[in-house]
Amino acid sequence: MTCLSKAATIGLKHERKYAIFAAVNSWLKTFAWDFQQLFLFSLRVIRGMVSRKFYISETLEQMYLIGVGSLYLVLLAGAFAGQGFAIAFSNELADFGAKNYLGRIMSIAVVRELGPTLTGLMVAARVSSGITAEIGAMKSSNQLDAMVSFGIDPIQKLAVPRLIALVLMVPALTIACDAIAITGGWIVATLIANMSTAIYWSSMKERLIFGNLFIGLLKPFVFSFFIAFIACYKGFSARGGTKGVGKATTESVVISSITILIVNFFITKLVHSAIRGYL
């Protein structure tokens, strides 16, 4: 009797182990499949960028929707994040008698890291959800098929203008975010940390050099590609009606946000080793 129950317990354990293994296996397969499809989709979008037909009015419309539409969000986030950074740093620097370096620290932190990442995340949250939902809804109502039946490539008409708009607007939004965050730092420096305006700005300008500006603009440029690819891919591959579109939209925001943080790390690491002398 005891032997039988032992054998049953062992069998159950094996079954559970196998179920976990099967679940991991299935998840890995899905991930690999999705990654491959995303890669192939990205190649099609890039090919669409260099083809003859160019939808200029759609691109301008998307630039307006992405750029102007996200500006208030980016400025608001940048202003408060900049001030928060400045308060935290000014207190720490004051302990070492190095408060005058606040502008320098702000310049590096905001231009290299905070500005691009914050802008990327804000745009990923606001724009990628919009792109996925719009394209997904078009797919579920057969509008994409209708487009194909009228001889229009949906990738060229929908994905390419969004990619170009993102590539142009995300760096511009990042510059706006950097400016407002550094200005927020200046407000904190003068009103809370009792620093002089001249010291803050001159130390800030000291670190506004090629290397930092290069990283600060390279990052949003790269982020915009990832946001566009992920958001459009999720929209084009949405299935299962409104529920499927909702799921695709959530996935689009989550994946593009995580991707931005991961890519940010690798760009920082890569560029630091490549152009260390210019930083």
């Binding site: 109502s141 057969n142 509008q143 209708a146 039946s149 009228f150 001889g151 229009i152």
Partner: peptide, 30 residues
């Protein structure tokens, strides 16, 4: 597809375009 046209379920009209732009879609594009 120039010889065959399809009317999709529920119409599949492009909801960001006006009725005029929908009907003239092919001529506007091609």
């Amino acid at each position: 597809r120039k010889r065959i046209a399809m009317v999709f379920q529920e119409g599949a009209l492009f909801d960001s375009l006006t009725v005029g732009e929908n009907v003239g879609f092919y001529q506007i594009e091609h």
